[in-house]
Simulated scan of single mutants.
Amino acid sequence: MSRQPTIKDVASKAEVSFKTVSRVLNGEPHVRKEVRERVLAAAAALDYRPNIAARGLIGGRSRLIGFLYDNPNYSYVTEAEIGALLRCREAGYHLAVEPVDSRGDVPRQIEQIISSLRLDGVILTPPISDDPGALAVLDRLGVAHVRIAPEAGRDKGPCVFIDDEAAAFALTRHLIGLGHSTIGFVQGHPDHGASHLRQAGFERAMAQAGLTTRPAHMVQGYFTFESGMSAGRALLDAPDRPTAVFAANDKMALGVMAAARELGLSAPEQISIAGFDDTRAAQISSPQLTTVRQPVDIMCQAAADMLITLAANEALDDPALQLPFEIRARGSTAAPAAEPQSV
C-alpha cells in the first residue's frame, strides 16, 4: 500500500466497523477480547499510525498527560517517568514531562504549562503534590490531576502512595533487630511531605524500643548525594558516632557511604548504612544498599491509569491507592561491632 493506511483500511482488514476500530485504539472498555486482538493485529499488519491531533479533535481528548516534577533525585524522577510513559504508550497516550521550580511561583508556572499544552490531566510528583497553590490552580482550570505520595489530604483527590511512616518504622526496626542502639538519621528535604513521615517512623521505632534519639544524631539533608556526604561527615567524624545511619533516601545514603570511605570506615563492618527508595544505584553500589523498596514506577503507572480512566468519564475504583513497600536487606548493614572503632 503506497499511501498512508487509514482507520477504514484497518476496519476492512479486521472485518469490523471503523467505530469499533476507534474504540479499540482509544482503549475504551467493553470490546470483546477476540475483536480487540483482531483489530490490533490488522493495525500492526498495515503499520497503521493514528493521528494523535486528529483523534483529540474528534473525541474531545488530547490523549496527552502531563508529568510535573521538581526533585533533586533524578533516579526517582526517571523511574517515575518511565512508569507513567509505559502505561501511556499502552493506552495510546503521550506523556509531556515538564519541570516546575518549587522555589518560584508554582501556580503561575503550572498555568503557563496548561495554557501551552492541551492536557487530559497531570501527574504531580513530590513536592508539587503537596503544594496548595498547584492544587488550587488545577482545580480552577478544571484539569484532572493525580498526586504521588502526598503527605496530607489524601481524601481530597486521586492519589497514589505508600505508607512512608510505616516503611521507615520497619527499616528502623530492622536495624534495631541487628543489635544497633545508637542510630543516626539523615532527614529528607523539609519541603517534601514524605520527609516528615519517614522521620516520624524512625522516631516511633526508636521510642518503642526504649532507645534515645540523640539530637546530634539527627542531621538535615536535602535528598542529594552532597547533603548525604556532608551529613555523613558530621555523624561519623565524631567521638560518639552511631553504629548505624538511616538516610531518608538512597542518594543521601550513598553520600553517607562515600563519607565513611573518606574517613576510613568500612560498611558494614564498622558502620551500617540504610536508605529509602531502592533506586538502581542502591542495587549496584558496593556494598549493595539496604533500603525500602518504594515501587515508584508502579505508582506512576497507576496514576497514569487513573487519569486515562477519568478522561473516559469513568469512576475510579480506588481514588486513594496505597501500594505496599518492602524492606530490602543487603550488604550495607550487619550487626554492630562490640564497640565503635576509632577513625
Rank of each mutant, 00 (worst) to 15 (best):
A11S: 07
A14F: 11
K19Q: 08
T20S: 10
H30V: 11
V35M: 04
R36V: 05
L40T: 11
L46P: 15
A53M: 01
G60Y: 08
F67M: 00
F67W: 02
L68V: 06
L68H: 08
L68D: 07
P72K: 05
T78Q: 12
A80T: 12
L86Q: 12
R87Y: 01
V97Q: 00
G104S: 11
R108A: 07
E111S: 04
I113Q: 00
S116Q: 04
S116T: 07
I123G: 00
D130T: 14
D131L: 09
L138N: 12
A144Y: 09
A149C: 11
A152F: 07
A152K: 12
G153D: 13
P158Y: 07
E165D: 14
A170I: 14
A170C: 11
R173K: 09
L178T: 09
T182R: 15
G184Y: 06
G193L: 05
G193Y: 06
H217E: 08
V219G: 08
S227Q: 06
G232D: 08
G232W: 04
L236I: 06
L236G: 08
D237H: 13
R241D: 06
P242I: 01
P242D: 03
A248R: 02
A260D: 15
L265F: 13
E269I: 01
I273W: 09
S286E: 15
S286M: 13
V292F: 02
R293S: 05
D297E: 09
I298T: 15
L307Y: 07
T309C: 07
L310K: 14
L316C: 11
A329F: 01
A334S: 10
P336D: 06
